[in-house]
């Protein structure tokens, strides 16, 4: 059973960061929209990381929009997790899945 989400976001547009938006949609699964200056080289890796992060948090029926500003792998992960937690309205995450 997937959890109920609200629209939420995390991060900034600043260099080395990522701006992540989570939007509930009327569809199953996780849709990812990525904009990145390193799209050609790292696009697939970033998408995979976003998907893996969201899946680990058992969310579904969301669109995740990521604007990557040259963020490290863990920054993307942190931003996606924060945005999802905000979307779920959960203050205390399950650290073991993060």
């Amino acid at each position: 059973m997937s959890k109920k989400l609200e629209t939420a976001h995390a991060g900034t547009l600043e260099s080395s960061d990522a701006f992540v938006r989570v939007i509930p949609v009327d569809a199953k699964g996780i849709e990812i929209e990525l904009e990145s200056s390193v799209e050609e080289i790292y696009g697939d890796a970033i998408r995979a990381r976003v998907l893996e992060t969201a899946t680990a948090m058992s969310v579904e029926g969301v669109k995740i929009i990521v604007q990557d500003k040259g963020a490290l792998d863990y920054v993307i992960k942190a931003r996606v997790q924060t945005a999802i937690l905000r979307a779920l309205g959960e203050a205390e995450p399950d650290w073991s899945v993060l």
Binding site: A10, L72, A78, R79, T82, R86, L98
Partner: peptide, 14 residues
């Protein structure tokens, strides 16, 4: 506060 906590959580392990 929440986003900074999450960022530091990951940075510490990097």
């Amino acid at each position: 506060k929440d986003s900074a906590r999450m960022m530091v959580f990951h940075a510490l392990q990097h």
